[in-house]
């Protein structure tokens, strides 16, 4: 009986996290369109609901009822499974993200602010995030379209190239907090914004944010789906719900990388000043994530897209040596400060 209760409890907890993430994904698409509209001096979606507030729901219903076309010559099993393979890693990463300090009490059950605090949290997220690249690569290959194949290949090359500096940038926070767990990493940054790792690891933070943009295929690194040359890249042939899954995966990944950046560099749910701690920690966490997401959208409206050779060269010739140098300096300074 106890085991059954525990599994039901975990299922409810997962439903809360997944529902929250999917709700945020839906409204992130609306926020992106609204912000881009505002930056380009137009209104964005206005028709569905007050100022387009119901637009994501209308989009969701439309995609759900769309015909699902499987083109001739595709590998049907891989074509069908690839979007799910892309979506699952983006969602399950949130299992180890600590959203706040306080537990949520509903009746006499208590939900901890993190689903499970495993001691290899950040490694777990990175390992599963790498699996997401398979969804893109397999989807592009299975489509039997030249645009999809090129988009999938480009995406795989880009994601693996930027994963190295991304992983190296996170070594700084891991070294300083002596832990891979997201919870202890947050705990190591309490007390005020001067304890946040972004203060001692500014280069690491910049490398992380740039690589996170590339990992999530966001502008200026959105070459896998460069409309001007590859139509829609790896999901050219996808329609209906399968298309929606790729879309969900991209936006869920944006929220996930912003959450990691918040935990690893921006103090997690900690308030910037001790006297601001009366505001519930979850609002600080979400505020930091929203600020990063706004920055991502802002970049999309501001910077032009890179060329593919520039993109690859930038990762291998600039980001990787810079990330290594950052680790060397950090470890040597940390060693002598500790002595």
């Amino acid at each position: 009986m106890d085991t059954v209760f525990q599994i039901v409890f975990i299922l409810v907890h997962i439903a809360i996290i997944m529902g929250g993430v999917l709700l945020h994904v839906a409204y992130l698409t609306l926020a992106e369109r609204k912000i881009l509209g505002d930056m380009q001096d137009r209104l964005g979606p206005m028709e569905v609901g007050w100022h387009g507030i119901l637009q994501p729901i209308a989009d969701g219903i439309k995609l759900f009822f769309k015909e699902d076309i499987i083109p001739s010559g595709t590998n049907k099993i891989i074509f069908s499974a690839a979007p799910i393979l892309s979506l699952v890693p983006a969602l399950i990463g949130f299992a180890v993200v600590p959203f706040g300090r306080d537990s949520l009490h509903i009746g006499n059950v208590t939900f901890a602010p993190v689903l499970t605090d495993i001691n290899i949290g950040i490694l777990y997220i990175l390992a599963f995030a790498s699996l997401g690249a398979y969804g893109v690569l397999l989807g592009g290959w299975a489509s039997n379209s030249k645009y999809s194949l090129l988009g999938g290949l480009r995406s795989a090359a880009q994601v693996i190239s930027y994963e190295l500096p991304l992983g190296l940038a996170l070594v700084g926070p891991i070294l300083l907090s002596q832990s891979l767990s997201m919870v202890s990493m947050t705990d190591a940054q309490g007390g005020g914004f001067w304890n946040w790792f972004v203060i001692v690891q500014p280069i690491g933070f910049v490398i992380y944010v740039i690589c996170a943009l590339a990992e999530t295929n966001r502008l200026p690194f959105d070459l896998p789906e460069a409309e001007s040359e590859l139509v829609a890249g790896f999901f050219t042939e996808y329609s209906g719900m399968r298309f929606a899954f790729y879309f969900l995966a991209e936006y869920a990944n944006m929220i996930l990388v912003s959450s990691i950046a918040t935990v690893a560099f921006l103090g997690g749910w900690h308030a910037p000043f001790p006297f601001l701690e009366f505001i519930p920690p979850i609002f600080w966490f979400m505020g930091k994530v929203y600020a990063l997401l706004f920055f991502f959208i802002w970049l999309r409206a501001t910077v032009p897209r890179l060329r593919f050779d520039q993109l690859m060269g930038f990762s291998w010739k600039i980001m990787l040596p810079l990330a290594l140098a950052n680790i060397l300096v950090t470890s040597i300074v940390a060693y002598f400060v500790r002595q």
Binding site: L11, M18, F64, I84, I92, A95, V96, T116
Partner: peptide
Amino acid sequence: APSYLPILIFIFVALGFGTVSL
């Protein structure tokens, strides 16, 4: 104690969400 069971369940829930809605 931190447990990996919720992660396993989460993987199945996410897979189920994808398959069921398709």
